[in-house]
């Protein structure tokens, strides 16, 4: 008997949620019709993003927040993204280890995912996974990613509240604060606060936040929270900051604005992704792309007229001449 995945997801079935996520990962066509049908049931979950360099204790923090949320009887979905090896294509997904205490709790669904080098962008896929959890009835969805590269910044745009985790002694603060982090961080967490250099890091981050806020005249000034996640210290402050940011977004109307922007961006990206997918598939199917490359190499063609030709071929009406 075939499983009605849509109905099952809406009832919160982990089996169905897990399978549709796999289809999303594999860019399997079966995902699309499911996503279309569950879409009307999304938009209820609050989405939290947690990012930071490897070794900052993100999983432990995620575990702590999950614990706090469960104590308030809120259900939680987690998507933990770890990098794939560019050499072997494999991945070690270790975040589950830190979440052992939730592993028998039906109120928590956790999915580990590898970055895989998605041609369509990791963000595309993460968005899908978040929607599945959202439609599956999770009150909170937490996305956890490693690093602060462009991919991660894109992923974080999916979140309503984004937390950037830093630790003393990694020395990457200034670098990461330059690299677009200031733009996405709603909350800073200084984890492993029992380590030397914590106070200094705190002051440094606070200084940059103040500086940035005074220039940009922000209505939300990101708080800086100190935690020792392995001991559960600061977990409640962290949750309080999240709640405060949520309240701010809701009361100021920024949540709707944020979500509208997100739909705008997402829709454009999805169109881009789909067009790209179709064209890529056709060009690779009969090795046409290889012929083109050959001809460009031999200077018979150039990339500019190839682009024009390809686009005209499939989208003749789209060109504004």
């Amino acid at each position: 008997m075939d499983i009605d995945y849509v109905a099952e997801i809406l009832e919160g079935s982990p089996l169905a949620m897990a399978r549709v996520m796999t289809w999303l990962e594999n860019e399997d066509e079966r995902a699309r019709s499911c996503m279309e049908k569950i879409y009307p049931h999304t938009g209820n979950a609050y989405v939290l993003g947690i990012t930071g360099s490897p070794g900052t204790g993100k999983s432990t923090l995620t575990d702590g927040v999950t614990w706090q949320l469960r104590n308030k009887e809120l259900t939680v979905g987690i998507v933990a993204v770890d990098p794939s090896s560019p050499f072997t294509g494999g991945a070690l997904l270790g975040d589950r280890i830190r979440m052992t205490r939730h592993s028998a709790d039906p109120g928590v669904f956790m999915r580990s995912m590898a970055t895989r080098g998605y041609l369509g962008g990791l963000a595309q896929f993460t968005r899908g996974a978040v929607k599945v959890l959202d439609a599956g009835g999770k009150d909170f969805v937490i996305i956890e990613t490693v690093g602060v590269g462009q991919d991660e910044v894109d992923v974080m745009r999916v979140a309503d509240t984004t937390c950037v985790v830093l630790v003393p002694g990694l020395g990457d603060v200034i670098q990461s604060m330059k690299a677009g982090i200031m733009e996405i961080a709603d909350i800073y967490v200084i984890n492993k606060y029992d380590r030397p250099g914590a106070d200094q890091l705190f002051a440094e981050v606070q200084f940059r936040v103040d500086q940035d806020s005074s220039i940009k005249d922000r209505s939300w000034v990101p708080p800086v929270i100190a935690t020792v996640a392995v001991e559960g210290k600061g977990e409640d402050d962290f949750l309080e900051a999240i709640t405060a940011h949520r309240t701010y977004l809701e009361q100021s109307g920024k949540l709707l604005e944020k979500r509208r922007n997100r739909i705008h961006e997402e829709t454009l990206q999805m169109i881009h992704h789909e067009l790209f997918r179709i064209i890529r598939e056709r060009l690779t199917k009969d090795s046409r792309i290889e012929q083109m490359v050959e001809e460009i190499m031999n200077h018979k063609l150039n990339p500019y007229n190839v682009v024009e030709k390809v686009v005209d071929e499939w989208l003749p009406a789209s060109r504004l001449k």
């Binding site: 072997t88 280890i97 052992t100 028998a104 580990s112």
Partner: peptide, 20 residues
Amino acid sequence: IFAEAGMEVVYTGLRQTPEM
């Protein structure tokens, strides 16, 4: 070794019950 063979590996850690 599994990751090097191209698999995606979730290691659960110690003290797992069959349910977990």
